[in-house]
C-alpha cells in the first residue's frame, strides 16, 4: 500500500506541483482546496501525512491544523507539514503553536519535499 498524502492548497499550480513530486516518489495524493474542504476530505480519507498551505480562503492553514488537532481521535496525531513562503522564525512558531509537525518553504525543491514527508510519515 502506498502512503497517502493529503495536500491542502488553494492554488491549482501548487497542488499540481505537490502531486507531481509526491506521485513520482510513490505516494498517493488526495487534494483539497482550502481548510474547510481539507476537513471534509480528511473525514473521508485516511491520509498518512497532511501538507497544508497557510493563506487560503474560507479557512486558513492555522485554522485547519487546529481543527485537525482538536478533531477526531484517529487524526489528532497526524503529521502535518506547513507550506509557507515565509521562512522566518515567527511564522514557524505560529505554525508550531497551531500544532504543525514541520514545514516546507515555498518554492520547494521536490527532493526536499519528499524528504520532509518521509521524515514525518509513520
Amino acid at each position: 500500500m502506498s502512503k497517502i498524502v493529503l495536500t491542502v492548497d488553494d492554488s491549482r499550480t501548487m497542488r499540481d506541483m505537490l502531486r507531481m513530486a509526491l506521485v513520482a516518489a510513490g505516494y498517493t495524493v488526495v487534494q483539497a482546496e482550502d481548510g474547510v474542504h481539507g476537513l471534509e476530505v480528511l473525514a473521508g480519507s485516511n491520509p498518512d501525512v497532511i501538507i497544508t498551505d497557510i493563506n487560503m480562503p474560507r479557512m486558513d492553514g492555522f485554522g485547519f491544523i487546529q481543527n485537525v488537532r482538536g478533531g477526531e481521535e484517529k487524526h489528532r496525531a497526524l503529521p502535518i507539514l506547513v507550506l509557507s513562503t515565509e521562512s522566518d522564525d515567527a511564522k514557524k512558531q505560529r505554525a508550531r503553536a497551531a500544532g504543525a509537525t514541520g514545514w516546507i518553504v515555498k518554492p520547494f525543491d521536490p527532493v526536499k519535499l519528499v524528504d520532509a514527508v518521509r521524515r514525518v510519515a509513520a
Binding site: M1, S2, K3, I4, V23, A25, G26, Y27, T28, V29, V30, Q31, A32, H37, V41, G44, S45, V117, R118, A121, A122
Partner: peptide
C-alpha cells in the same frame, strides 16, 4: 513496516515499493 526501511540507507527512492496508480483517492478533483 518501518523496519524494512530502517534496514538500508541506500534505499532513498520511495517510501514504499507500491507504485500502484494514485487514482482511487483522488475523488476530490
Amino acid at each position: 513496516p518501518q523496519l524494512a526501511l530502517v534496514a538500508s540507507k541506500a534505499d532513498k527512492a520511495a517510501p514504499s515499493d507500491d507504485h500502484a496508480p494514485a487514482d482511487k483517492k483522488e475523488a476530490a478533483t
